[in-house]
Computed example of a mutant assay.
Amino acid sequence: MSLPTSNTPLYNHPLPQIEQWLTELGGEQDKEELHCWRLSHDSWSAEIYLETEQLIVCYLKADSDGNDIQRGFKYSLSRQDIQDAVLDGP
C-alpha cells in the first residue's frame, strides 16, 4: 500500500497507512495497547499515541531533570510536518 504524498494532512490517511508510516519510521506497535507505538533513535526514545484529536509524542526522560517531554500534533498537519517535528526529537 502506498502512502499519499507527504504534504497530505494526516487526517486524510486511513489508519493502516498511518500504521505503515510509523513502521517505516522505525516504530513498533504495542501488542496490548494498539494505539501506542514506541520509537527509538540514537539520542532519544519516545512513545507515540494515536489519540482521537491528535497524535501525542512523549519523549521519555528527555529534559535535564530526567522528566518526559510531551508534544501534541493535530491530524490536520501534513505527514511531513509531523514527521520532521517528531524526528527532530525533544
Score class of each variant (00 low, 15 high):
Asp30Arg: 05
Leu34Trp: 15
Gly27Val: 06
Trp21Val: 03
Asn7Glu: 15
Pro9Leu: 11
Gln20Thr: 13
His13Glu: 13
Gln29Gly: 07
Pro16Leu: 07
Trp37Phe: 12
Thr52Ile: 05
Asp65Glu: 08
Thr52Arg: 01
Ile18His: 00
Leu34Thr: 15
Leu3Lys: 01
Lys31Trp: 07
Gly26Trp: 09
Leu60Glu: 12
Glu32Asn: 11
Pro14Glu: 11
Glu53Met: 06
Tyr59Gly: 02
Gln29Phe: 00
Glu19His: 09
Leu50Thr: 08
His41Tyr: 04
His13Tyr: 10
Trp37Ala: 02
Leu39Gly: 08
Thr5His: 15
Leu34Gly: 12
Ser43Met: 12
Pro4Ile: 09
Tyr59Glu: 04
Leu10Cys: 09
Asp65Arg: 05
Lys31Gly: 14
Gln54Tyr: 09
Cys36Phe: 06
Glu47Pro: 00
Cys36Tyr: 01
His35Ala: 13
Asn12Pro: 07
Ala46Pro: 01
Leu34Arg: 10
Glu53Tyr: 07
Asp42Ile: 05
Gln29Lys: 06
Pro14Gly: 11
Glu28Val: 13
Gln17Lys: 12
Tyr49Met: 05
Trp21Tyr: 07
Gly26Tyr: 10
Lys61Gln: 13
Gly26Asn: 05
Asp68Gln: 08
Asn12Ser: 14
Ser45Trp: 02
Thr23Leu: 07
Leu34Glu: 15
Leu34Ser: 15
Leu55Lys: 00
Pro16Gly: 14
Tyr59His: 05
Gln17Ser: 10
Leu55Arg: 01
Thr5Lys: 05
Thr23Pro: 01
Leu60Ile: 06
Leu60Val: 08
Thr8Trp: 01
Thr23Gln: 04
Glu53Ser: 04
Gly66Gln: 10
Gly26Pro: 03
Ser43Val: 13
Leu39Ser: 13
Arg38Trp: 04
Ile48Trp: 04
Asn12Phe: 11
Thr23Phe: 07
Trp44Val: 00
Leu22Tyr: 01
Leu25Phe: 07
Leu39Pro: 03
Trp37Tyr: 12
Tyr49Gln: 03
Ser43Ile: 11
Arg38Lys: 13
Leu50Val: 09
Ser6Cys: 14
Glu19Asp: 14
His41Cys: 10
Leu60Trp: 03
His35Asn: 08
Lys31Arg: 09
His35Leu: 00
Thr52Ser: 06
Glu32Met: 11
Ala62Trp: 14
Glu24Ala: 10
Ser64Cys: 02
Ile48Ala: 04
Asp63Met: 03
